[in-house]
Nucleic acid binder design. Structure first.
Lengths: 334, 334
DNA sequence: ATGAAAGCGCTAACAC
DNA sequence: GTGTTAGCGCTTTCAT
């Protein structure tokens, strides 16, 4: 005689049989419906409990009102940029009674396709930070409402949320030029496959520098891993290169702070020997020493706006784009 | 003639009819099964696409292999303690092929019950930071695998993950006493309903102080909101109170950093005029000025361990408890 | 207050 | 290669 097969799930039917009632009655008890004898309810509930009965989410979903699950794809919760976006998404989703399932690619481009495949199968709509065109196409083609964030290469027909770094960079570079800086190193995120492409912070920096009469070219740009350590390593490169930067403008605050700390480790004074400017406006940027000048982005709003766009698509509205304009917050680092 | 009713969902049946094939063939096309003529597949796919067909997650779930969705309840993604836990949970869940749905109570005790109700309906297992006994009971009674984190009042039969602050506090207070401090203010989290109860940081602090021969009592404890601002306000209280603290030990790093910054704003030198010690070991604590001495907790491990316990319960194992032992990291703030 | 029947949308198993 | 049948587990009718 074979050992018992894998334990079949306990269904409403099992409970009904065991309690000597019909399925409906069990359903009534479990769902707290009024049309049931309190005594019966108690008895059924007890049986259900003792059998370890748990209604199937799927069977319920088939028949009940459709719950919306929003998939949110981010690169890494540990990068302090994302929690603020997540917070906005959670709040806005909650207002609409939606669930939020969260996915992290770990900033690994090669994992994006796998994540996209999962998302397509398990959620009803998607808000994502994604870079791989294949992964983006996968979600797009699934036909679900889709909002792609912070990606300059958004395919037509996909909604987006972007940050207007064109304006932002102009302000940031302008601020440094005003302060007398003529040699500005840009620490770019080496992780983005579109590095240097149109609309990236990289190329917008070069453009803004040119506008301000600086002879900036690719030699002004240093790649950095997207982390404190990456910023520190890139600062070493800037110093070793003999570039002679009097100011550093980084892809984001994490890189800027990493670089700034490394500069101080080398005995440099900030901002006297070298000024630092970041992007994103992390809470962190206020707390470090010296406080960091940064292009502040309303990340929570970015998240909320994305959800709003998903909602719009769900009701059949056209796709669109939300633009967040960053604001330069000048602090002691520059 | 009535306007069209609310648009019925497009089903596989609709596509089949419209493409002139059977449901099964549509299913084959959509799921990329091999046993289908490539030409048919193309045609069906085109029709499906044009009709905006999207398979129902629920119907699929009913029939296919059961996907596990883990619910993760935290207080607030913006509190930097949680992202590290989330990261651990995501990683461990991903390894098992589980989804993670995330819920935030916004640190609002009165919202916990509502969140718990949602969780019970929509996920298969739960890892939660929850304080309200009613909410906890709700999830517990649902019968789903449940791991309750950082709560000293865990009901019997519920798995848990706790941080051994008894040991931690002894180290932290010992460290301060060694440095010659005799007047230590404790900044407690005023948001916890169990404030001062057995096993809380509050009472563990008093116990540890007594062990070290300090005449500590409730007047040494100052309530603080759980945030930078809360810490700052509490520091004002300590100063206004004339307590004469030479050291401050806070419920967590957020409160400690807020207090420390406020102290400096008042012209106090850290650690000469007042030393500061936090709990949690946030990444942030390394970056502030001066770097904060803190009881470091492996939050990512806490998350991973919680998922491991859920997995254990899913396979019928008994409930249990994971204990994380914090480690005192001494930095310049003390 | 309770039960019987119908059906939600899909896929696995088995025909053809 | 394609169609037919039979459920998955639940909640809604609608009877009783």
């Amino acid at each position: 005689m074979p050992m018992s097969a894998r334990p079949r799930r306990i269904t409403i039917e099992d409970v009904a049989r065991s309690a000597g009632v019909s399925r409906q009655t069990v359903s009534r008890a479990v769902n707290d419906k009024p049309e049931i004898d309190p005594a019966t309810r108690q008895r059924v509930l007890r049986v259900a409990q003792s059998m370890g009965y748990r209604p199937s989410r799927f069977a319920r979903g088939m028949v009940g009102p459709r719950l919306t699950t929003l998939g949110l794809v981010i690169a890494d919760v540990l990068n302090p940029f994302f929690p603020e976006v997540v917070s906005g998404v959670l709040a806005a989703a909650d207002e609409r009674g939606w669930q939020v399932a969260i996915y992290s690619t770990g900033s690994a481009l090669e994992r994006e396709t796998a994540v996209a495949r999962t998302v397509v199968d398990h959620v009803d709509a998607c808000v994502a930070f994604l870079l791989d065109p294949g992964a983006i196409e996968l979600i797009h083609r699934s036909g679900m409402p889709f909002v792609l964030l912070d990606n300059e290469h958004r395919p037509p027909g996909v909604s987006g949320g972007r940050i207007d770094f064109a304006t932002g960079m102009r302000h940031a570079v302008g601020h440094l030029v005003e302060r007398g800086h003529r040699r500005i190193a840009m620490l770019d995120d080496r992780g983005r496959p579109d590095a240097g492409g149109h609309g990236t912070r990289h190329s917008l920096f070069l453009g803004a520098a040119a506008e301000h009469g600086l002879p900036a070219d690719e030699t002004w740009v240093f790649p950095a891993a997207n982390s404190l350590e990456g910023g520190a390593a890139a600062m070493d490169d800037v110093l070793a290169d003999g570039f002679g930067a009097t100011a550093v403008l980084a892809y984001n605050d994490l890189i800027a702070i990493g670089a700034m700390r490394r500069a101080r480790d080398h005995g440099m004074r900030v901002p006297e020997d070298c000024a630092f400017v970041g992007c994103d406006g992390l809470t962190l940027s206020r707390l470090v020493d010296p406080p960091l000048t940064t292009l502040t982005v309303d990340k929570e709003l970015l998240g909320r706006a994305a959800v709003r766009q998903v909602a719009a698509q769900l009701t059949g509205a056209a796709t669109g784009e939300t633009v967040i304009v960053p604001r330069l917050v000048v602090r002691a680092s520059s």
